[in-house]
Amino acid sequence: MKLYAVSDLHLSSAVNRAALATFDARPEDWLIVAGDVGETEDHLNLALDTLQPRYAQLVWTPGNHELWRLPRSSPGGVERYERMAALCRARGVLTPEDPYPVVAFGDRTVRIAPLFTLFDYSFRPDHVALEDVILWAREDGIGSVDEVRLDPAPHLDRAAWCRARCAETERRLDAACADGLPTVLVNHWPLRPQDVRLPSIPRFAPWCGTTLTRDWPTRFNACAVIYGHIHMRGVKREAGVAYHEVSLGYPRDWEGRVEPRDCVRPIL
């Protein structure tokens, strides 16, 4: 049995929906889907309808696009996240709300921890104050749709929701990882600021994670960290940890560069 991962399917794109249909079937293996499947429950259902018959088990964690309040009259914030998680759980897909499973892949036994941490604008230079970060990004023409569509209700703001999610997740990881078993940490956003590679839009970094998680790979004995969001596929190894950015991305991110099925990355 093997473990694979992919993220950022962005099924609002008809091109990406067609690409999804080409993904290989691996009925004995597990697949991590690390967020940004799409913006609607229909997008999430399409992904599950396609991928569940092809894999033994799916693991899902949300990205920012799943949390967008579309249409504006629909639920947002925590309620929206809980609806998406409930949709997955009703279909047997593991989510950040489930116990972290312990699984053997070949001769290696690991604990898979799907996380949901959001962002708090702390991936910014030291000289930029929190209250100035959005204006600082706008100086380079950079912004994020999250500022309009990602409703943090009932939290005061997105940073407060991020802090709450990180505190709860940290508590659960502390309890679950006391045995020292190697972990696979799965999050849509990078866990460390040094993993955010945005050469063309460096000032987008504040929407890419939180420094609250920067020591989690070491602290929770990760052998692999899975993330997406930045649409820069690749893997780097550092101090025994493999950091995998596993996004498909928008068509402009993969057309003419890679076959979509090859974006499903082998992890273990």
Rank of each mutant, 00 (worst) to 15 (best):
H127P: 09
N64C: 09
A56M: 09
E147S: 07
R149M: 06
R158I: 01
L87N: 13
D215P: 11
S12H: 12
D42W: 07
A224L: 05
Y100A: 01
V133M: 09
V148R: 05
T22K: 03
V78C: 11
V241S: 09
R261V: 15
A56Q: 14
D179T: 10
V102Q: 04
A178F: 08
S247M: 08
D253E: 15
I267D: 00
Y243D: 05
A18W: 04
L118C: 12
V145N: 04
M1H: 15
D140E: 14
N221C: 06
R26H: 14
R252M: 13
L48E: 08
P182M: 03
G141W: 04
Y4S: 01
M232N: 05
V78H: 10
P251W: 10
T169M: 14
L212G: 09
P199R: 08
L31N: 06
R158T: 06
D36G: 04
W207I: 10
L11Q: 02
R83W: 01
W136T: 03
T109C: 10
F119R: 00
P193S: 03
E82K: 06
E259T: 03
E82V: 01
A86K: 12
D29K: 10
R54I: 07
C88L: 13
V241P: 05
N64L: 00
V235F: 05
R265S: 11
V37G: 12
P27W: 08
K236E: 15
P266S: 07
R89Y: 04
T50S: 14
F119W: 13
E79Q: 06
T210S: 15
L51V: 09
L20D: 03
P53D: 09
D36V: 02
R252V: 15
L173Q: 10
T183W: 02
G240K: 11
P99I: 06
I112M: 00
I226N: 02
V15C: 05
V6A: 13
M84G: 12
R80C: 05
N187T: 06
L135N: 14
R203E: 04
L67Q: 00
T61H: 04
H229E: 03
W254M: 06
I230Y: 02
L11I: 02
L70W: 05
C162T: 03
A5C: 13
A137Y: 08
R203G: 12
V196N: 07
L115T: 08
E82Q: 07
D215Q: 13
L67I: 01
L46V: 05
R83H: 00
T218G: 13
L198Q: 01
M84R: 12
D120Q: 02
P96D: 07
F220H: 12
P71A: 10
P190M: 03
